[in-house]
């Protein structure tokens, strides 16, 4: 086949499906830490992301604060996180407030008690998922990778599971690799790896091992050129995905020549 038919080849992948919605782009972008909202808008465009996370906060009574929503295109899914919640009840309250805004019912449950490591509290996350899924929310829970928690979340109605790769904002990469692998192997819902991914190579590695999508925020927003970084992550995630579905061969301990081992010029028969 001639080389100009790459669309056909890529079409062999099926889209990521969450709660009946299909996504061709597997890069979720977090919208925190950007220097200004235009930089965020540029990143949404350069990455082609179809899902972005946002947070809910008290409005600033001292100065005119502008909502971030006008900078997010209408066809991009708004996934409101419950950051700031310290228990299930607070996460539920934030999710209900977000739903009231009319920009959808997708919620990333994030319950954190620890200010040093910012690790999610899986137990409270399960409780919040039970309540919100029963109220019709599309629930994407952010967890410390743990098989039992993931199973409980799916039972509670979670649409996906979002295990952390390493500590939030740490850029440490795929520290939890072996535990995320177990989730990929055992769970039927999409596994979206969230937090700690600091470089496109790490995002590609995550996708190569079979994650369904990757969420990145800090590494993009705090780079010197966020729009370029966002594009780089998006390409890496696509590359990793294609590598995964192409089923790469296993690593070997000895060499295996790439060129034929017969017909050498200097061979005498």
């Amino acid at each position: 086949m001639q080389g100009n038919n790459s669309n056909h080849i890529i079409a062999q992948d099926h889209p990521l499906e969450i709660a009946g919605k299909k996504f061709t782009n597997r890069f979720l972008l977090g919208t925190g830490k950007f220097k200004n909202k235009q930089e965020l808008a540029d990143c949404i465009q350069s990455s082609g992301t179809q899902i972005v996370t946002v947070a809910l906060r008290r409005i600033d009574l001292e100065q005119s604060g502008e909502s971030i929503l006008p900078y997010i295109p209408k066809d991009v899914i708004i996934l409101t996180n419950t950051s700031g919640a310290r228990n299930a009840q607070e996460a539920v309250r934030i999710a209900r407030l977000a739903k009231e805004s009319g920009c959808g019912n997708w919620v990333k449950i994030e319950v954190i008690n620890d200010s040093k490591y910012l690790l999610p509290d899986n137990n409270e996350t399960i409780k919040a998922t039970e309540i919100l899924a029963s109220e019709g929310f599309v629930v994407l829970p952010y967890i410390t990778p743990d098989l039992y928690a993931a199973r409980a979340l799916v039972k509670a109605g979670a649409a996906t599971v979002m295990p952390l790769a390493s500590l939030i904002g740490s850029n440490q990469g795929l520290k939890a690799k072996e535990f995320i692998k177990i989730l990929i192997e055992e769970m039927d819902v999409p596994i979206i790896v969230d937090a700690g991914i600091g470089a496109p190579s790490q995002a590609a590695e995550t996708m190569e091992m079979g994650a369904d999508a990757v969420l990145v925020n800090t590494a993009v927003a705090t780079s010197a050129n966020p729009a370029l970084a966002a594009k780089a992550f998006s390409l890496a995630i696509e590359a990793g995905r294609l590598a995964y579905i192409s089923r790469l061969p296993k690593q070997k301990d000895i060499a295996d020549a790439s060129s034929p081992l017969t017909g050498f010029l200097f061979e005498i028969s």
Partner: peptide, 10 residues
């Protein structure tokens, strides 16, 4: 009264 809005977040 609580008045909230959407801000950037991960």
């Amino acid at each position: 009264i609580e008045l909230v809005t959407f801000v950037g977040g991960g």
